[in-house]
């Protein structure tokens, strides 16, 4: 395939996914917005008013970046894991791509890009919703850091979702990871609190949680405050990208979980 033909194949995959997600927007965009609204209402307005400030900013402002990140993480993960699993398990429509000359890396890029697009769009919607709870004020310390972290996070979790989608053998297989690993890691990654407010032993555990670094980096983009160096957060995200790309490429190249 020429570079142009590869671009066409990539465009076909991403277009198909975007058309699908807008066709069923009630399922793809609305749930995260409703969940986030409830979080803002309960944690921000009701409980936040009693908590007061966190790291020198009002609590509602403090939780906004974490809740946006929660939406980006869960949505980008769910999009690729679900899309890939259903296309290999239910309709077996993944064969359409497997029989074509589309190379393995392009297949990964196509599915992952769908996850990134949906993750970023949902993140943007949640951010817009947050404005109604922060009196239509939005503090931005660095737009570049915000977008960079949002993009890298969506990339990491779209890649992780693809690993799950490729390897899952049952529908439960794509629900186990988000339920038992992803959600606890996100909640314990510092969405609702600063790591400095934790006891020492819990702080040590939190530093082993990769989600902590991306939430911190993202929060830095808005508020200019962070618990760890920004460079550490970026490095950890990039290492995750490399590892997950390698795993996905190996799975698709060898047909593990895909071919007999």
């Amino acid at each position: 395939m020429t570079t142009y033909q590869k671009w066409i194949a990539f465009y076909t995959m991403i277009r198909k996914d975007i058309v699908r997600m807008f066709r069923i927007w009630v399922q793809t965009f609305l749930p995260s917005v409703i969940t986030s609204t409830l979080y803002f209402l309960v944690f921000g307005t009701v409980l936040g008013s009693r908590i007061g400030d966190m790291q020198g900013v009002d609590y509602m402002t403090f939780v906004v970046p974490g809740l946006v990140m929660l939406a980006v993480v869960t949505t980008s993960y769910a999009n690729t894991s679900f899309m890939f699993f259903t296309s290999k398990f239910f309709a077996r429509s993944i064969d359409e791509i497997l029989v074509s000359p589309t190379p393995p890396w392009l297949l990964i890029a196509g599915f992952v890009s769908g996850g990134i697009v949906r993750g970023l769009l949902v993140g943007l919607l949640v951010l817009l919703v947050s404005l109604f709870f922060t009196g239509l004020t939005l503090t931005i310390h660095s737009a570049l850091v915000i977008f960079g972290f949002a993009f890298l996070t969506a990339l990491v979790f779209a890649l992780a979702g693809l690993v799950n989608g490729i390897y899952a053998k049952t529908i439960d297989g794509i629900n186990i990871v988000p339920t038992f690993f992803l959600t606890p890691l996100v909640y314990l990654g510092g969405i609702f609190y600063s790591v400095h407010s934790l006891p020492d032993w819990w702080q040590a555990i939190t530093y082993a949680n990769p989600l902590f670094y991306l939430i911190n980096g993202f929060r830095y983009g808005f508020l200019g405050i962070t618990d760890v160096a920004l460079s550490t957060s970026v490095l950890i995200l990039l290492v995750m990208v490399v590892i997950l790309v390698a795993i996905n490429w190996y799975f698709i190249r060898t047909g593990l979980g895909l071919k007999q």
């Binding site: 395939m1 066409i8 194949a9 076909t12 277009r15 359409e96 074509s100 589309t102």
Partner: peptide, 15 residues
């Protein structure tokens, strides 16, 4: 129509 058109896309054929 979309199924057949998209298949062409996977082979690098413009829409």
């Amino acid at each position: 129509l979309d199924i057949v058109t998209n298949q062409g896309g996977y082979y690098g054929i413009p829409r």
